[in-house]
């Protein structure tokens, strides 16, 4: 399963830049391609595409969404075990483990350190073993990961 790019692509390169797993390649102003072995079906490419040139794994066109409405991870401090799987899996390096508040403080947790870098791919939420991460859009509405 993977997303695909159609001939509507104008080669702007935005999807390749945003793709959290660097699955998209292509020359500027020519049609881009998605590496099916790499694609994680997060749909970020399609949400960003101004041309409607991205089809999801079921072959449906992915609808463009303004970036401020993309979901962001919200991490439950109670559930998080600071195992850092999310930090490691984030291709955008948007997550980090918090610093202890004082020496000897073991209650640290993952948090969204760089909100601008996050593309809302939800890989963190999918891989979190503690199910501590939900994807929410601004205003608090939860989106399925």
């Amino acid at each position: 399963m993977a997303h695909t790019i159609t001939e509507k692509c104008n080669g702007c390169g935005l999807c390749a830049k945003l793709c959290p797993v660097s699955a998209i390649t292509g020359e500027v102003k020519s049609m881009h391609r998605i590496n099916v072995k790499r694609c994680v079906d997060c749909g970020v490419c399609g949400k960003a595409c101004s041309e409607g040139a991205v089809l999801n794994a079921r072959g449906q066109e992915v609808v463009r969404i303004p970036r401020q409405q993309w979901p962001k991870p919200v991490i439950s401090r109670e559930a998080c075990s600071a195992c850092a799987i999310c930090v490691d899996v984030c291709g955008k390096h948007a997550l980090a483990i918090s610093l202890p508040l004082r020496p000897g403080d073991l209650r640290v947790y993952a948090y969204l350190k760089d909100e601008k870098a996050c593309v809302g791919c939800a890989m963190c939420a999918k891989q979190c073993p503690m199910e501590a991460i939900t994807m929410e859009i601004a205003g608090g509405e939860e989106v399925p990961a």
Partner: peptide
Amino acid sequence: LAENYLTRNSGCISCPIR
């Protein structure tokens, strides 16, 4: 070490023990 040198604790990926 904790009193004089430690900045924080950390761990291998996936580890809650850290």
